[in-house]
């Protein structure tokens, strides 16, 4: 069976990397952060979320930061994930790639208005 690759970086994986830039989060925390940063356009379901997490873990882009109680609910022990330096590097290079695309789009004058 083919192994999942990260080239190109899937959108869900990129969003997860971005979600972990500021703080270590558990699965549900990642889901909420992704929903927040995409204005609810992307709501990762458990299957997609943990499947992406596993691939990111296998590629050393994120790592487990140990289990601890959730600070919001304080009632369950959860597995937290944190971004590795490779993960940050990949997220940065993906962002730069997208910024390059945006520059081309601007140059072609297909983007106008205050929202860009």
């Amino acid at each position: 069976m083919p192994k999942r690759t990260l080239d190109p970086l899937p959108s869900a994986a990129f969003q997860i990397l971005l979600a972990l830039v500021d703080e270590n989060l558990h699965g549900y925390g990642i889901m909420r952060q992704v929903a927040l940063q995409t204005e609810n356009r992307m709501r990762l379901g458990p299957g997609t979320l943990y499947s992406s997490i596993r691939v990111l873990l296998e590629n050393g882009l994120i790592e487990e930061s140990g289990a601890r109680e959730d600070t919001d609910t304080g009632d369950e022990r959860r597995r937290y994930y944190r971004l590795t330096s490779s993960g940050l590097k990949l997220a940065r290079s993906e962002a730069e790639r997208l910024a390059g695309l945006l520059r081309v789009a601007r140059a072609k004058k297909i983007l106008r208005g205050r929202y860009v």
Binding site: G27, Y28, M31, L44, G45, P46, T48, L49, Y50, R79
Partner: peptide
């Protein structure tokens, strides 16, 4: 963990429409 995520969302997304949204999300995800 997937079950825990489901519990978290069920706890936070109460009401008919949010719950419906949740199930659509889950089924789509599956």
């Amino acid at each position: 963990e997937a079950l825990q995520l489901f519990r978290d969302r069920s706890r936070d997304e109460k009401g008919f429409l949010p719950r419906l949204h949740l199930w659509f999300d889950l089924l789509f995800d599956v």
